[in-house]
Amino acid sequence: MTNENNSLAEKKTPSIYPAKIKMQITVIFFVILGIYLFSMYWTQKEMVGGFAGALGNMFTVIEKFFPPNLNVVPAIWGPMVETIQMAIIATTVASILTIPLAVLAARNVTTFKPLYYTTRTFLNILRTIPDLVLAVIFVGLFGIGLFPGILALIVFSLGILAKLISETIESVDMNPLEAMRASGGNVYQVIWYGLVPQVLPQFTSLVLYVFEINIRASVVLGYVGAGGIGLILNQQLGFYNYPNAMMIIVLIFIVVIVIEYISNKLREALI
């Protein structure tokens, strides 16, 4: 749209935007475009047929995957349930473990700076490690099974949950806490009567949110041997049994949607 203005305008009429900003935006635009084009070149260099070939392949895939094989539902139902249970256990354990961490990572409660910064840094590093990488490490440590999967989910969600809850704690009204200290309440009473009622609704809401994240994460953990439905999905794809694989994907899709719907309704009721 600015091009249009330029072609119409005489040199003396002022431009809508200052020349310097225009220059900056143009440079940034071309840098981003350049990186994008290079990324596209790089990621496609090992691909046979290039972009056009990829689009053509899409239809063969759809042909391969459809229709999903409904007969496998009874066989995959068990692992699906197991996957949900993994997420439930992991979310529960994480929400308990997160309490001390969140308190230590809240600037207004943990006034001892070194402790606060240590906890913050620990949580920040924890959050950079992807869930599947944790699962790979725990599988290496504990062997194949549900346990490493649950552990991976716990550690992964702990990082997210503790950070979000510590931010909630930092936003509470500190005045009632002062009033309770002034009337002779001890540390535990002040936290229980002043802090907890202010944090609890947000806490529950965040736990539900992390539960949704854990459900999504748990369906793929089986890929690295950490239990749940991902293992079967991996096997079926390995056998090129695409209709079965598609049924698993559809089931995952339904479960994720249903759980998110329930969780959303619960959260709306809370706040």
Binding site: S39, M40, W42, T43, Q44, E46, M47, V48, F51, G53, A54, N57, M58, T60, V61, K64, F65, L132, R216, A217, V219, V220, Y223, L233, L237, Y242, A245, I249, I252, F253, V256, I257, E260
Partner: peptide, 27 residues
């Protein structure tokens, strides 16, 4: 919201089958 319900890795599985095991499937 339908698109959001797919975990990234599941999408990746579909695209690996479609365009082969390479970085562009990831993109």
């Amino acid at each position: 919201s339908a698109v959001r319900a797919f975990p990234d890795l599941i999408l990746a599985i579909l695209f690996v089958v479609a365009v082969g095991p390479n970085a562009f499937a990831g993109v």
